[in-house]
Simulated scan of single mutants.
Amino acid sequence: MEELVDFLRDRLDEEEIDAGRAMDELVMVATFRPGMRVQMPVDVALHQVPPAVRSHIARWDPPRVRDEVAWRRAFLDRYETTVRLRDEAAARIRAAGHRPDGGDLTRWERAHDEVAVMEPIVREMAAPYYRLPGFRPEWRTS
């Protein structure tokens, strides 16, 4: 799973860079008739775009993409922290032998259960990237 998380973080970095570039160049080139291309600010150009297309463009607005990237990163951070807490508790339990600390058992159980819930979500987060180089077949969810 560590490699899958790294793969996802790389994709999120790319999406954030692309969104930043788009914000830097919030200009649309519109073609009104053959040979006539006009460059204008997006908010002006969007009035020339059919409503369904305008709605799609708005959903992929750079600030919205950046917000989604931030949410996905936060989720991956929490996942990695939970995996680390699970593994640390497991190591302490193993080191204690026949007398593990009850708190460590509780921490391990809680982290283990959280990882079990979060891991399929991490896999689903990778699903849109299945066509990209570096995506591994074993990461597919179905």
Rank of each mutant, 00 (worst) to 15 (best):
L85V: 13
V69F: 00
V49N: 07
M28E: 11
R64V: 11
R37F: 04
S55E: 14
D67P: 07
M36L: 15
A95H: 07
W108F: 14
F135Q: 13
R73Q: 10
F32K: 12
R110G: 04
L85N: 10
V69K: 05
A58W: 08
Q39Y: 12
D10P: 05
R94I: 05
L132Y: 05
P137G: 12
R94N: 04
A70L: 03
D77I: 02
R64C: 08
E15P: 10
L12R: 14
V42R: 00
P62R: 00
G102R: 11
G35V: 03
A52G: 02
T106N: 06
A74R: 15
D61S: 15
A96R: 06
G102C: 01
P137R: 15
V42S: 07
I57S: 02
R136I: 08
G102H: 05
E138D: 14
E14S: 12
D13E: 14
L46A: 06
V122H: 01
Y129L: 14
D43K: 04
D6Q: 07
E25V: 13
P137E: 15
M36W: 12
R21N: 12
V53G: 04
D10A: 14
R72M: 11
V27M: 12
S55W: 09
A126D: 01
L12F: 00
I93D: 00
M23K: 10
A116V: 02
L85G: 03
R131V: 15
D113Q: 13
L85T: 10
